[in-house]
């Protein structure tokens, strides 16, 4: 945490503030997703602010994960999936065929629902992406990346003596933080998190949430969550999805205290979902 504070001051990264409106990092316009014949997402318009945490909430199957996976084109890996509409990252259209997904994903990292460390050593898990993207060449560079990423993910102190042990040997919460460390090793601009705590116990969840809050100083974070409490705790912006439609979006506080839409009201008060 000390090092985080340091980066903030020395690098002068603009600190996100709940009250000040943020610059828009991702702008999605009329995004629709089809799985074969079935449409899963209907004309979603959503802007995602820089250096803030945006939560996507809604009942299961509402399309929130589908939308998240559009942001780094992970839907490309699903056979028969088609995405329509526009998504601009810093003004660059990411849904165009001309865009290189490999480079896109280096800029937009992702953390999954279940921790999925590779069956490699902890260090190799971290250096995997920098190595394939050619971000470092010497061992010293890689060591530095490992240390910095693990520190930033708050895992360094726990694993610094066993960097050569397999990442799969860690506890669930540690594995998830390893996955976060792995994602930030390439210094992405955006981190997508797909229910990152749903497979974890409450203590591990608390640690991850803390981490998310710290990471937003440097990264734009979009998180899909099933838990409204979590959305309320970690995010500044919240978007509510229902049946593939973006029902309502806005400041988290506004969504949870004064929802404009009846469906949002029903959902957050627990009437369905």
């Amino acid at each position: 945490m000390a090092n985080l504070a340091e980066t903030q001051t020395t690098e002068g990264v603009p600190v996100a503030n709940d009250d000040i409106p943020q610059a828009i990092r991702i702008a999605a316009e009329r995004v629709s997703v089809f799985y074969g014949e079935k449409q899963a997402l209907f004309d979603v318009d959503l802007d995602i602010a820089s250096h803030s945490v945006t939560s996507l909430i809604g009942p299961s199957g509402c399309g929130k994960s589908t939308f998240l996976r559009c942001l780094n084109r992970m839907n490309d890996t699903i056979e028969g999936c088609r995405v329509a509409g526009n998504i601009k990252l810093d003004g660059v259209e990411i849904l165009s065929d001309a865009l290189d997904v490999v480079q896109l994903r280096a800029r937009v990292g992702m953390v999954f629902q279940k921790p999925n460390p590779f069956p490699k050593s902890i260090a190799d898990n971290i250096t995997y992406a920098p190595r394939i993207h050619g971000l470092a060449t010497t061992k010293a560079d890689f060591d530095a990346i490992v240390e910095r990423s693990l520190r930033r993910a708050g895992l360094w102190d726990e694993v610094k003596d066993r960097l050569d042990e397999p990442g799969t040997g860690l506890s669930g919460g540690q594995q998830q933080r390893l996955c976060i460390a792995r994602a930030i090793a390439v210094q992405p601009e955006v981190i997508l998190m797909d229910e990152p705590c749903s497979a974890l116990d409450p203590i591990a969840t608390a640690r991850i949430e803390e981490l998310i809050d710290e990471l937003r100083q440097e990264y734009t974070i979009v998180i899909v969550t099933h838990s409204m409490q979590q959305a309320a705790r970690v995010s500044q912006k919240t978007a509510f999805f229902h049946l593939g439609i973006l029902v309502e979006e806005g400041e988290t506080e506004q969504i949870f205290t004064a929802p404009r839409d009846e469906r949002t009201q029903d959902y957050i008060t627990g009437r369905f979902g």
Partner: peptide, 13 residues
């Protein structure tokens, strides 16, 4: 952001 870019080359830049 720019500082980070000097320490680690950004893939796109």
């Amino acid at each position: 952001m720019t500082d980070i870019a000097t320490t680690v080359p950004r893939p796109l830049a």
